[in-house]
Amino acid sequence: MNDTLLSVENLSVTFPIKPQGAWPWTPMLGLKAVKDVSFSIAPGETLGIVGESGSGKSTLARAIIGTVPTSAGAVRWQGTDLTTLDVTERRKHRRDVQMIFQDPLAALNPRMTVGEIIAEPLITHYPNTPKNEVKEKVRDLMSRVGLLPNLINRYPHEFSGGQCQRIGIARALILKPKLLLCDEPVSALDVSVQAQVINLLKELQAELGLSLIFIAHDLSVVKHISSRIAVLYLGRLMETAPAKELIEHPMHPYTQALVSSVPIPDPDAESNRQAQSLSGELPSPIHPPSGCVFRTRCPKARATCAENVPDAQFPHPDHAVFCPHFQE
């Protein structure tokens, strides 16, 4: 398949956890943050990843970008498996995949000026770029993301959260990457600024032909920007489908619960809304439930759910559901 930019195959991330009161020789426990996740993304496409807190969304992003080690599976970038590359080779590939972070201010070094921050990827990968050219590019990019170019010598603490996120976006775009990973880029911003940042991302995507992986816990935000959505629960994929299809016809019981919990911005409709709330809490990822991990909270759970990890079912070629009982 030549038209896939990035494909993730059975990716697992397991963090070693020291049990309480452990001796140095006590075996470590494994926290399975991401388990057997597969998806692929085509150029220009936007994949939304949703899930509640602790479902492994951020870990998945970090495994793709390579800041946490993967324990199994492959991350293929145009055919090359990034997880097997050595450090220098891996560093070369970093210019194609960039990331935007959740906390806009924390992602910027407080001791550097905005100009230095935005230029950093450029001078890292092309250290011989003349200074004027770097400055020109930074100013150009600043005006493109909606910042005044004359703020180039300011420091991050002199900006608002939304502006800081724009700085982060400018930094991510200076190398003209092909894929942008957005790890909850708007959850720290207020709603009006959220809309600005999302629209900015959409514009830039149309302009530059970027692919986006957009992570959020807010389904209404993801719905607005994504062409496809993947639902993650406890590090496992639950359902993937085109955005419209997933919102209108959720098949997996977990997705159904998620979709029904999105508030409707209409008081009448909102008061009639039947929110299907889930009972219980997210199980421990150190000792996940056997079989289907969602069975402890699933309204459709039955005894057989505990036996096997469910395989993907395809109601449409594009729509994968990891639940054998979705039709009932």
Partner: peptide, 17 residues
């Protein structure tokens, strides 16, 4: 553990830098 360090790693900045 701050995010700007992670951002630098993601950019591809070398460890000494």
């Amino acid at each position: 553990n701050k995010e700007f360090i992670e951002a630098a790693i993601a950019i591809g900045v070398s460890t000494p830098t």
